[in-house]
Simulated scan of single mutants.
Amino acid sequence: MQIEEIEIRNYRVFRHVRIRSVPRLCVLVGANGTGKSTLFDVFSFLKDALSMNVGKAIARRGGYRELASREHEEDPIELTLRFRMEIAGHSRMITYQLQIGLDASLRKPVVMREVLRYKRGSHGRPFHFLDFSNGSGYAITNEEDFNRPDEELDRDEQALDAPDILAIKGLGQFERFKAASAFRAMIENWHISDFHVSDARPSQEDGVAEHLSTRGDNLALVANHLYENHPECFARVLDAMHRRVPGVSIVEPEQTIDGRLVLRFQDGSFRDPFIARHVSDGTIRMFAYLVLLNDPQPYPLLAVEEPENQLYPELLPELAEEFRAYAQRGGQVFLSTHSPDFLNALTLDEIFCLRKENGFTTIRRASDSENLRALYDAGDLPGYLWKQRLFEGLN
């Protein structure tokens, strides 16, 4: 399942932006304050709204008037995602549209409209398989019965417990609502990284963790899980570390006498290994990224801000290759960067440029620039073009 289009209205610096034909590897560039972190926060907001509710997700961001675009605090916030998934043997473009606004009588944010729609056939308008407004609406229970006309499909009328609860939160639990269930599962499994080297360093108590947390504080446990249960994945991590990081030949999780797990790194120049707290920040970060990118179950969406931090510049093209390989295996990747070395490993089609115009942000694919396309086709690399300030309007 891949997101192919994102449209955002009235969300902080995004008064109205639309990203079309989103690639599997999508990299954002732009000056500070143009909204790279805000785009990632849209993903976090949807995940928070699903796991809690819309009201709590907005409260975590300072309230509705802080979340809405400046001077448009009374206008609704609208988020639209278009993605492909297979239904009844056919790949279909599905649209999820969410509109949130302030209810004057309740004095709190509510879900004004929530729609999930796609075309049942090759012609005609998309059919609404889920349609809710202000806490009530319907969902189609036999959406895969394509032999029946639209008017004969079975509608399940529902009333939610509160007007700030997403309909996909409840209905997505049931397999009979195919698109809602798949979309809910996709959001629940998004990984928006907030990695901190200081959290990844300490040894940890004995336990089990299959997937790296957003902060990376269970790195040793996940490494141990890969080591014991997915040796082929751990071997890929070791091979990449050996190729990408000079001097590191072996990385192994080790259990201490008191039940803690520590990571031991072997430098080929020395006889004895050393534990993680004596390893450089860049080595820990690279190892954490490789563990994340070699997860046996790729996240449907992985978002990482500025992966170049604390890494030697010559490692960045190698890291870009690892992210692209992950995307090709099935996990869509969103990144932001300020690094020319990282950009040099990308194609123009993978780069999206953010810039401010009259106080709000616009987003444009780098390959849409005729000048950049001509220079790139002539052999110039994107990072060098960025460094020479040739990305129009971004400097």
Rank of each mutant, 00 (worst) to 15 (best):
E5G: 04
I6L: 15
N10H: 01
H16M: 02
H16V: 07
H16N: 10
I19D: 03
R20D: 09
R20A: 10
L25C: 07
V29F: 04
G30Y: 08
N32R: 01
N32Y: 00
G35W: 12
G35T: 11
G35F: 07
D41R: 15
S44N: 12
K47R: 09
D48F: 10
A49R: 03
N53P: 04
I58W: 00
I58C: 03
I58E: 04
R60T: 05
E66K: 02
L67I: 11
S69Y: 00
R82W: 00
R84M: 08
H90F: 13
S91L: 12
M93Y: 04
T95G: 12
Q97N: 14
Q99L: 12
I100W: 01
G101L: 00
L102K: 06
L102H: 01
S105H: 13
K108T: 00
V110C: 07
V115M: 15
R117I: 04
Y118N: 03
G124T: 07
R125D: 14
R125E: 14
P126S: 10
P126K: 13
F127I: 10
L130H: 01
G135A: 12
I140C: 08
T141D: 04
N142H: 07
E143F: 06
E144F: 01
F146K: 04
N147G: 15
R148H: 09
L160H: 02
K169H: 10
K169L: 06
L171A: 01
F177A: 00
S181G: 12
I192K: 04
D194Y: 02
F195D: 00
S198H: 14
D199A: 15
A200V: 06
R201V: 13
R201K: 13
V208Y: 07
L212G: 00
R215V: 12
A220I: 09
A220Q: 10
A220K: 08
V222F: 08
Y227R: 12
E228S: 15
F234T: 01
A235C: 11
L238K: 05
D239T: 09
V245C: 09
P246D: 13
I250V: 15
V251C: 07
E254N: 08
I257L: 11
R260H: 15
R260T: 11
L263A: 02
R271D: 05
P273C: 06
V279Q: 11
D281F: 06
T283V: 14
R285K: 15
M286L: 11
A288N: 08
V291G: 07
L292F: 12
N294S: 12
D295C: 05
D295A: 12
P296T: 11
P298E: 11
L311Q: 03
P313E: 10
L319S: 01
F323M: 05
A327V: 06
R329T: 06
G330K: 06
G330M: 04
G331T: 01
V333Y: 01
S339F: 14
F342V: 10
N344E: 10
N344I: 01
T347Y: 09
L348I: 14
L348D: 14
D349C: 03
E350W: 09
F352I: 06
L354S: 05
L354V: 08
L354I: 10
K356P: 02
T361Y: 02
I363K: 06
A366E: 01
D368M: 13
N371D: 03
A374T: 08
A374I: 02
L381F: 11
P382H: 08
Y384N: 13
Y384H: 08
L385R: 09
R389F: 08
R389C: 10
F391W: 07
